[in-house]
């Protein structure tokens, strides 16, 4: 890890206010290709907002976000959607799987959103379910599987289109230790194999221990030592 490699994704001087509540005051962060970066901090510190900004889900009020040489903050909503569809993957704490689709269809969703044929999308999706050891729930609906299985399905969905960055917001937040560990192990192993970077928002140190590096957000402020260099 040396500071000379250009970061894949970098945000500087990010500021975001929801109504009268400042969520981000001055946040700086960078993500290098293939690394697992933990974003830590107490609840309400602005971790999730920082993740949303970086992923192009939320436009910051001020600051710059550069992904792979392109300025995210200057893109249109359509371009950012396309970017999220093709280059980013997402795992949230809960409520991300479409309850009426089967697990397999859920995993195939990003590919289909990007225009891939259903058959091919579901073939690839099945491969990922297998890698995350949840091939047996492929035809079940999210409501019929356990929390740990659901979260692994979500991880499969985040990886199915081979993104370069996976954003994980408290991916183990709703799981017990054992299932949490399992999801983290599979998530980091799969992303390392795929060479994808992970931005891992968590308040649990044990989960953060799966990262290569961490930055701390406190009261909407974060500094990334790597970027200062």
């Amino acid at each position: 890890m040396n500071g000379t490699t250009t970061p894949l994704l970098a945000g500087t001087g990010l500021r975001k206010t929801y109504g009268a509540t400042p969520a981000l005051v001055d946040a700086t962060i960078c993500v290098r290709a293939g690394e697992v970066l933990a974003v830590m901090g107490p609840s309400g510190s602005g971790k999730s907002t920082l993740l949303h900004c970086l992923a192009g889900i939320v436009a910051p009020d001020a600051g710059r976000i550069v992904y792979d040489g392109r300025e995210l903050t200057a893109m249109s909503d359509r371009e950012r959607s396309a970017l999220r569809r093709r280059e980013f993957g997402f795992v949230f704490q809960f409520g991300q799987l479409v309850p009426e689709l089967t697990c397999l269809e859920n995993v195939a969703l990003p590919l289909r959103l990007d225009g891939l044929k259903r058959r091919e999308a579901e073939r690839r999706a099945a491969g990922w379910l297998d890698r995350l050891e949840v091939a047996d729930v492929a035809d079940k609906r999210p409501g019929e599987v356990s929390g740990g299985q659901g979260q692994r399905v979500a991880v499969a969905r985040a990886l199915v289109h081979q993104p370069r960055v996976v954003f994980a917001d408290e991916p183990t937040g709703a799981l017990d230790s054992l299932n949490g560990e399992r999801v983290m192990r599979l998530l980091t192993r799969a992303t390392r194999e795929a060479g994808a970077a992970v931005v891992l928002v968590t308040h649990e140190t044990r989960v953060a221990a799966y990262s290569d590096r961490e930055i701390v957000v406190r009261d909407g402020t974060s500094h990334d030592a790597e970027l200062v260099a």
Binding site: A38, R206, A209, S211, D212, V216
Partner: peptide
């Protein structure tokens, strides 16, 4: 301190 702890925790992980 957390950074230091994390370093050890990463090793353990």
């Amino acid at each position: 301190q957390r950074a230091e702890h994390l370093r050890l925790m990463r090793d353990l992980t």
